[in-house]
Simulated assay, not measured.
Amino acid sequence: MPRHSEKRNLPYSPEEMFDLVADVGRYQEFLPWVAATRIRSNSDTLMIADLVVGFRSLKETFTSRVEKQRPRHITVDYVEGPLKYLKNDWEFTPDGKGGTDIDFCVDFAFKSRIFETIAGQMFDRALRRMIAAFEERAHALYGDASSATGMSRSRAQSAA
């Protein structure tokens, strides 16, 4: 049952980071292993979305309920699919210097032992790629973050 918490600091506002994370419909454009997305419903405070995720020939669709409290918090809860459960929390706090302290936590388990085994073997690598993808997307959308990337990596390493 993979579980991971991480803290990062990025030079973008909480509103910008919230908007990036809440834009689930564009995840397939930048997140590894996300093949497709479908937004079933969306409002300022709640979204129901399907994601098709896969690795090699294994592909699965799962549905999530995304609760949004702009610009501070996003909570993702599992609705249906190949998981036993999924809980994902994002918290965006102004750092007082124009950037954002981001607290991220994900906890999930697969129903399938095959997926659970694969996830266990690849979890750290996959998580690093996904976190890097969010940071790269922020850079592409909002500008240069080269000075903050080093800071965020050093904070993440010291928090480990």
Rank of each mutant, 00 (worst) to 15 (best):
G25P: 05
D19W: 03
D107V: 02
Q28H: 15
S64A: 06
Y78T: 00
D124E: 13
A49H: 06
E116T: 14
L51K: 02
I74E: 07
S43V: 00
E15S: 13
V24G: 03
G98H: 05
F123P: 05
G81C: 07
A49G: 07
G120A: 04
E15N: 12
V106K: 02
A35R: 13
Q69C: 08
V53F: 01
W90G: 05
A22N: 15
S64Q: 14
T93C: 06
E67Q: 13
F115Y: 15
T37L: 06
I74H: 04
V79P: 07
M122N: 10
V76G: 01
Q69D: 09
R125N: 09
L58Y: 12
Q28W: 04
S57I: 09
C105G: 08
R125C: 00
V106N: 04
R70I: 02
A36E: 11
D101T: 12
S43F: 00
A22R: 03
I118D: 00
D95I: 01
T37R: 04
F30I: 06
F110W: 10
W33M: 12
V21S: 08
E91S: 11
R65L: 14
V53W: 02
V79G: 03
D101S: 12
D107K: 06
L58F: 13
V106W: 01
L83G: 06
T93A: 10
D23R: 09
F108N: 03
G54V: 00
P32C: 07
R38M: 05
D19R: 12
S41T: 12
A22G: 04
N88E: 14
R65T: 04
D77T: 14
R40N: 11
I48D: 09
L86M: 14
L31V: 08
C105T: 15
R72F: 11
A119I: 01
S112P: 04
N42Y: 04
K87F: 11
T61N: 07
K97C: 05
A119E: 08
F92N: 08
E29Q: 15
G54D: 01
H73A: 08
E15T: 12
T61Q: 11
